[in-house]
Amino acid sequence: MYNGGKIIAGLIIFIALVTFPFYTNMGKTIEKPADLAAAPDELHIGDLPIGQMRAEHMMLLDKWRDEVVRGGQRYITYDGDEYEKSIQNGCLACHSKQEFCGKCHNFAGVNPYCWNCHYSEEEGLL
């Protein structure tokens, strides 16, 4: 081999970069952030099955935001009850920000900018 030293050194650096996730995670066991508490086909507010809520809740929130801010329609009726389309008074009335939103978002490396404006009771005003 010609210039073997340089070539092998380059190869070792390259392989070290490519296999980075394998050796940094060596021996770790990964805890799932959460399992669904309800059956995936059970319906949630907004008539979305809960299984779908996990993947599509951000679109529902986006739609609600437009309906509230632009259309002034603040409430949604679901199963006879009226709910406010609101993060603080709606979602966070039942769900905990840290436990419910944060766990999965941190796990997936998602930083929604909801919290630029909204706050949760448990954290208080920043």
């Binding site: 990964i30 996990r54 997936a108």
Partner: peptide, 15 residues
């Protein structure tokens, strides 16, 4: 897709 399950799968591959 359910991104949490996707990450469970990919972390399974990495570990």
């Amino acid at each position: 897709v359910d991104i949490i399950k996707v990450k469970e799968l990919t972390m399974g591959l990495a570990t």
